[in-house]
């Protein structure tokens, strides 16, 4: 009689303890677009970033990617991939932030560091020539972040020009 009561109580007690959740990461991502405008203040020119909803051909869009790990475990090997938006061309001006991105010129089939990207061009003579890809050839950009600790966040920036 008493044993079963204790057993039930223990069981109840066990059920009342908070459940121990399995630790897991939860990465969130967001992207905002801004455009650069030149402000002249007392003869001094400076570049300001303003939110962009409308853009004129030839203007520059600055995309900021916000990522965060809202989970309770480190996220590993986070690969953030972004096809260069249709109608724009990537601007390689050194403003892309760390970690160093890689680029694809074949719509995401393969990626490489900028200096290592090349392609083969067939000449009219029939010979093949290897050419270095330029930023106007890039179709995708990606960053690989080895670890995003739980509770941390980061930002990545890159610029494109509207055709």
């Amino acid at each position: 009689m008493n044993r079963s009561l204790i057993g039930s109580t223990l069981l109840l007690a066990a059920l009342m303890l908070p459940a121990v959740a399995f630790a897991k990461p939860q990465v969130t991502i967001g992207v905002t677009a801004e455009k650069e405008i030149t402000v002249v203040n007392q003869g001094k020119k400076s570049v300001k970033l303003v939110p962009a909803t409308k853009i004129t051909p030839n203007e520059v869009i600055v995309y900021t990617v916000h990522y965060a790990n809202k989970g309770d475990e480190t996220a590993t090997n986070a690969v953030i991939e972004d096809p260069i938006p249709k109608g724009t061309v990537y601007l390689a001006d050194g403003s892309a932030s760390a970690p160093e991105p890689e680029f694809s010129i074949d719509h995401g089939k393969s990626y490489n560091k900028a200096t290592l990207l090349s392609y083969e061009m067939k000449l009219p003579s029939g010979k093949a020539e290897r050419r270095q890809a330029t930023s106007s050839d890039y179709t995708n950009i990606r960053w690989t972040i080895k670890e995003i600790p739980a509770g941390s966040s980061g930002k990545l920036k890159f610029r494109v020009k509207v055709k």
Binding site: T76, I80, D82, V162, K163
Partner: peptide, 19 residues
């Protein structure tokens, strides 16, 4: 080369793994 009213869409995706 862009037409007026064209929608420039940027879609970003992240793939990741747990510990």
């Amino acid at each position: 080369g862009s037409a007026g009213n064209t929608i420039v869409r940027n879609t970003i995706t992240v793939n990741y793994a747990d510990a």
